[in-house]
Design a protein around this nucleic acid. Structure first.
Ligand SMILES: [Zn+2]
Ligand SMILES: [Zn+2]
Ligand SMILES: [Zn+2]
Ligand SMILES: [Zn+2]
Lengths: 124, 124
DNA sequence: CCAAAAATGAAAATGGTTGTCATTAACATT
DNA sequence: AATGTTAATGACAACCATTTTCATTTTTGG
């Protein structure tokens, strides 16, 4: 059984508090604001370990910054406003089925996917 | 009618030569290797203009680096082997329709999408 | 030809991420 | 408690793609 250190636990509960995606820098700020003396390096290291253990998921913002979230929340995707950042969670069973069909068609196994939509919300 | 400068034209023909995705740095190297004295800054600027004019498309490598390609090649996505890197180009009209429907449902405009599949190919 | 505008490239700045390394915390053994 | 061993930590520097700055050059239109 993989063991888990203090920093990783802090990161997990911060991610729970956030309830969605957050960048390493944001998580760092949140912890510091709570008086935690954690270092940025440790935040990156803990996130990497959690990634390796498949406890968190990563995706890329349009500007390339990495965003992390807890796995285990129901699988879903996002529709993000390019201008104000507003994010709508979306589910798409048709996409899930499509992805699986494509994987099978090409004899790929263990296929995951990245599906994110970016646009301008009604206010922007 | 939008005008197009020398650098933009160079970038377009380099992208044609490449025939797929390439990063700004790679395009810069290619041009320099051909004896062109173009600056990296100009490459980035030209790519940005081409993006604005929707002449090129951008997507992100898993490490966050931006990759550019000419639009006009048929829009498609990728199924990539996590282990050996083998890439299969896939098209998915059902995904395209789904994305548009989601966008409309939430009153988003100018919605683009990122759809990439990652798995293990039959050989791996 | 000439002035105004656009384009250019060198260099510096930015910002997210990773590497280095000396210090510290945790833990097991005597 | 004292010791040694190993994992974890954080300050700091390094990295690298991208952006900004700014002085200079090229293009353009009259
Ligand atoms: Zn918005
Ligand atoms: Zn999905
Ligand atoms: Zn493979
Ligand atoms: Zn598509």
């Amino acid at each position: 059984m993989r063991t888990m250190n203090k920093s990783q636990i802090k990161l997990i509960s911060t991610l729970e508090r956030v309830g969605g995606f957050a960048s390493a820098q944001e998580l760092y700020q949140l912890l510091r604001r709570d008086g935690d003396g954690i270092g940025l390096t440790t935040v990156y290291r803990a996130l990497q370990s959690l990634l390796d253990d498949k406890i968190v998921d990563v995706l890329r913002r349009e500007d390339g910054e990495a965003l992390y979230r807890l796995c285990g929340e129901a699988h879903h995707h996002h529709l993000v406003c390019r201008s104000c950042g507003t994010t709508v969670e979306i589910e798409g069973s048709s996409v899930e089925r499509w992805a699986e069909a494509v994987a099978k068609e090409h004899y790929f196994r263990e296929v995951g996917h990245t599906v994110e939509l970016f646009g301008l919300c009604s206010k922007c």
